[in-house]
């Protein structure tokens, strides 16, 4: 932790001197802009009272062009991607008055959760830099269906439904202007992990854009783990299902038998 902070401060100092030296040289700067990030914690624990958590990502831009920095040509986007898995989207239709799942689509390896923070409003089309090519942001996540798709219009409906449901469920979040510059090149992003965040390895990614083109990106893993009893229960249920089932039955037998002793009338 201390090392990382020290690194951050040194990074903060370097670009300032470099940038100053570069201004007279204009556009033809040889040094490339870079990015470095650090996270407030690299492990989030889910205990029985878990109600979500906040994650702070610190970062510094190296070798920024002071002129472009001043007119706001740089954009920083920070994302937190959950573990990837297949996702099945189902659609209901009315059959004899009853709502039945009729159609479904499976998307391959999409993040189970996704939070995004950026230096400016991502929703505003007038301000939106052309970042879509980089696949950053909820609207630009790759949603590739598995199998044969009959209707392209249907595909976009399912994709739209997937994003809408994930946003409504709180697993996908966008924090417009969640990235703030603390100094000219040092920034801070806050991301929210919902209460139902999946456990596993999440990835913090920071992207640096110059006038809408991706310059560089950095990533740091973040582990989300269930702790204590929750962890033990989930592990046992998945790794030793028979022992777990037996334990469930035993607890039930003891509870029922105990009650018949405690409340015995004679």
């Amino acid at each position: 932790m201390f090392c990382r902070l020290a690194l951050l401060f040194s990074l903060l100092l370097i670009p300032a001197t470099n940038g100053f030296a570069q201004i007279p040289m204009g556009e033809a700067s040889s040094a490339k802009e870079g990015l470095d990030i650090g996270v407030s914690t690299n492990e989030i624990a889910i205990a029985s009272d878990f109600r979500g958590a906040d994650l702070t990502v610190f970062g510094a831009m190296t070798n920024p062009d002071e002129l472009l920095l001043a007119i706001g040509s740089y954009d920083i986007i920070v994302t937190l991607e959950g573990p990837r898995d297949y996702a099945t989207v189902r659609k209901k239709e009315r059959i004899f008055g009853v709502w039945v799942n009729t159609d479904s689509m499976i998307f391959e390896q999409v993040p189970e959760s996704y939070s995004i923070a950026s230096t400016r409003q991502l929703d505003d089309p007038t301000q939106l830099p052309p970042i879509n090519t980089a696949g950053v942001g909820i609207e630009h996540l790759a949603l590739n269906p598995i199998g044969y798709i009959r209707d392209v219009g249907e595909l976009s409906d399912f994709r739209e439904a997937y994003r809408r449901l994930k946003l409504a469920g709180g697993l996908y979040q966008k924090e417009a202007s969640g990235v703030r510059f603390v100094s000219s090149s040092l920034f801070r992003a806050s991301l929210r992990l919902p209460a139902n965040v999946p456990d596993g390895v999440h990835i913090v990614r920071a992207y640096l854009f110059k006038s809408g083109t991706l310059l560089t990106q950095r990533e740091i893993p973040l582990r989300v783990v269930k702790t204590g009893l929750e962890q033990a229960i989930t592990d046992t249920a998945h790794n030793q299902p028979f022992a777990y089932g037996l334990l469930c039955v035993l607890i039930a037998l003891v509870t029922g038998w105990g009650a018949s002793i405690v409340f015995r009338k004679d």
């Binding site: 996702a87 099945t88 439904a161």
Partner: peptide
Amino acid sequence: GLFIRPQDLYSVAVGGIGY
């Protein structure tokens, strides 16, 4: 619950193959 129109006609489940 079976007959009223659900709030969202779509639903999402984690997993796909062999699920």
